[in-house]
Design a protein around this nucleic acid. Structure first.
Lengths: 157, 157
DNA sequence: TGTTTTTCCATGATATTCCATAGATATCCA
DNA sequence: TGGATATCTATGGAATATCATGGAAAAACA
């Protein structure tokens, strides 16, 4: 599985082109589709990004839930219907549509934020705020990464 | 699992380069990624270091959360977004970014402190203080090393 | 044919690799 | 045992390669 680490800020030019950080490209290098899948976050003013293979896995996961539950239907609609598949160009760049740029306010710079299995793309200033928030929550509520065998699902919303 | 032992102080040159102690490199020698992952400590003015494989494991564990749960997002933002992956150069050195140098005040020397599965990187003076502090706390509160019964598999020696 | 999209190329900045040296440690052999 | 030699480690500097970025050329489209 590709692992996205660290944060990189790159320029978005007037055509919407932006370089995917080389470390992220390296994480994608063994993928069959050379590019990323993006869609608008449901929780923040940012974009969510994945390797294409991870989207396939996501599909399988959703399949494990109740196929006709409205929750899952909403989620699937929000994710798959929204998702765009962006190939890397010869120089390692992707092109963000005006809609994506506008949604995440990426008029000038885009911060690629590695979150392990996925990544996000933020307006750098908005990211700063988000980071402070996340750190606060983690230390206040004592969140830790659970051990592997007691996988949890559910508790969301 | 690589095991980091002992304390070594090395020079940080003006480009941020610093030799990883040879003992640490030996501990990493059987790893697929020849390098380390660093991030800012949440508790001290020092850097925390791991083998890349440890991050992979964290990534898998994190994958057990709901993909868009706020817990997953907060944790990933606090951990993966902050982490940097640093390869060893041909001479066994890593390059610390200005941000990392500044955070841990590593302008001149860096003390690599082995803590078993992980290690820390300290400003040597700050480390001295920290050690005195730790000793004081231990003797004052009568802290002892707990018995072995909650040891996880694999952690002998 | 005018417009948009994609590919290609140039460049400065940054990062990575390579080489040289010196000190410390270990090894070897008489 | 003792001295000489080799090896490893840490460190500095220089050469080389890569990355991010802007713009132009080529191709696709309407």
């Amino acid at each position: 599985m590709p692992l996205f680490l660290s944060t990189h800020i790159n320029k978005v030019d007037k055509k919407g082109r932006v370089s995917v950080p080389s470390g992220f490209r390296a994480a994608l290098s063994d993928q069959s589709f050379q590019g990323v899948v993006l869609f608008r976050s449901n929780n923040f003013a940012c974009l969510e990004g994945f390797a294409y293979s991870y989207m396939e896995e996501l599909g399988e996961r959703l399949d494990n839930f109740d196929l006709f539950s409205s929750e899952q239907d909403d989620l699937a609609t929000a994710i798959f219907a929204e998702a765009v598949q962006l190939p890397l160009d010869g120089d390692g760049r992707i092109i963000l549509s005006p809609e994506l740029v506008e949604f995440a306010a990426l008029n000038d710079k885009a911060a690629f934020v590695g979150l392990g299995p996925k990544f996000q793309i933020w307006n750098p200033q908005a990211l700063d705020k988000r980071r402070i928030e996340a750190r606060k929550t983690v230390s206040k509520s004592g969140l830790t990464v659970p051990k592997n065998n007691k996988a949890k699902a559910g508790a969301h919303d």
